[in-house]
Design a protein around this nucleic acid. Sequence first.
DNA 1: GTTAATACCATACAAATGTATGGTAAATAT
DNA 2: ATATTTACCATACATTTGTATGGTATTAAC
Lengths: 206, 206
Amino acid sequence: MARELTNIQKKILEFLIERKTKGSVPTLAEIAGFFGYKNRATVQQHLQAIESKGFIKRNPKISRGIELTIEDKFFIPRPVLGEVAAGNPLTIYPDSIDTVELPTIARMPQDSFLLRVKGDSLKDAYIFSGDLVIVNPNIEPGDGHFVAAILDDAAVVKRFFRRKNRIELRSENPEYEPIIIERTHPNFKIVGVVVGVYRSMDKKVG
Amino acid sequence: MARELTNIQKKILEFLIERKTKGSVPTLAEIAGFFGYKNRATVQQHLQAIESKGFIKRNPKISRGIELTIEDKFFIPRPVLGEVAAGNPLTIYPDSIDTVELPTIARMPQDSFLLRVKGDSLKDAYIFSGDLVIVNPNIEPGDGHFVAAILDDAAVVKRFFRRKNRIELRSENPEYEPIIIERTHPNFKIVGVVVGVYRSMDKKVG
DNA sequence: GTTAATACCATACAAATGTATGGTAAATAT
DNA sequence: ATATTTACCATACATTTGTATGGTATTAAC
């Protein structure tokens, strides 16, 4: 028991988690609708498989009676989408490079993602190499916000300042020069605003 | 509209909130069962009244389709149990001293709690005043672990080292002397091991 | 004294929901 | 070559669920 989930089962479990976090667990019909199944029995069978593997618990006969047993776990696995340079820009990865166990208390809006910080240019902002920054792409950055940005196919985390005809990305660490982006800069994009920082102590106890 | 709720309506609304925070919104039958009503229609009528007063929104025909429109105000009182001194011990508070705003769904794991750090003795461990440390009381601390401890009715977060006949709690910041606890010390207790640090950037953008 | 609001009940019904059974097809393992 | 697992479908059925309607009793308002 507690075998691995198949790909489809994973997808369904993810859907359950997502729906639960933004409302309530779906019914079989809703799941079927989302995945394009013409029949609720298909969903039923998948759910039975997921339950037998220990990832959910179903309350028989009760509508939306799916409990996520993984919620009791301390951490929820979240993909780390890439690494960002706090100092000099680093290459960003196309796919997730890693998965971290993020505590459930960390505020993780649905549409946000994680980036792992490399380098020490944010030292004075208390963000360090290895920390995970939680980035929300749907917030308009304001002066002084920490933002993640893509600059010529590299990613950085720095503090954002809007000036007349340019944007400045500053490090807290005075060793690093601010990056000045003119309006005309071709390959520049604000990815999102850093809404939180998380650091696991697991590997740092030694 | 948006008149006052009657007492019964208040009770029902409270029930809805409670159920939602610990799972999912109840069905009419479940509400009726909880309040001892023999009929779902009674609940239906109360819900219609509550809705007409603007406290909930109902999704017709959908099971458990009650949305709490007051949700945004309401949420989520996640208690911070006290403040811990990273430097010199601070008095611990009997009750929660503060609340961190967390989304409804972000549940704290049952076996852990939050402490907000004050002071800068852990500066060199990259933990700063205002950060939240996630403390798990069910882990046996090992050498070098960051632990939360109670010492003479005060709480501290420091690094843990076990020696022959004593325990040492060290700060990373050399300005602070290590605390030496002899075996015989009466009022000393390890509360738990710090498993993570979380910092919300909300208030730090300026 | 009548009206209105509140708080319940019983009955009824269509749709939603979870469940069960049997079957097909493809991929994988033995 | 056969058996197993996975991934779907169709059909069927008993409850559950939300909803509607009509009724009773109590209290407060006019």
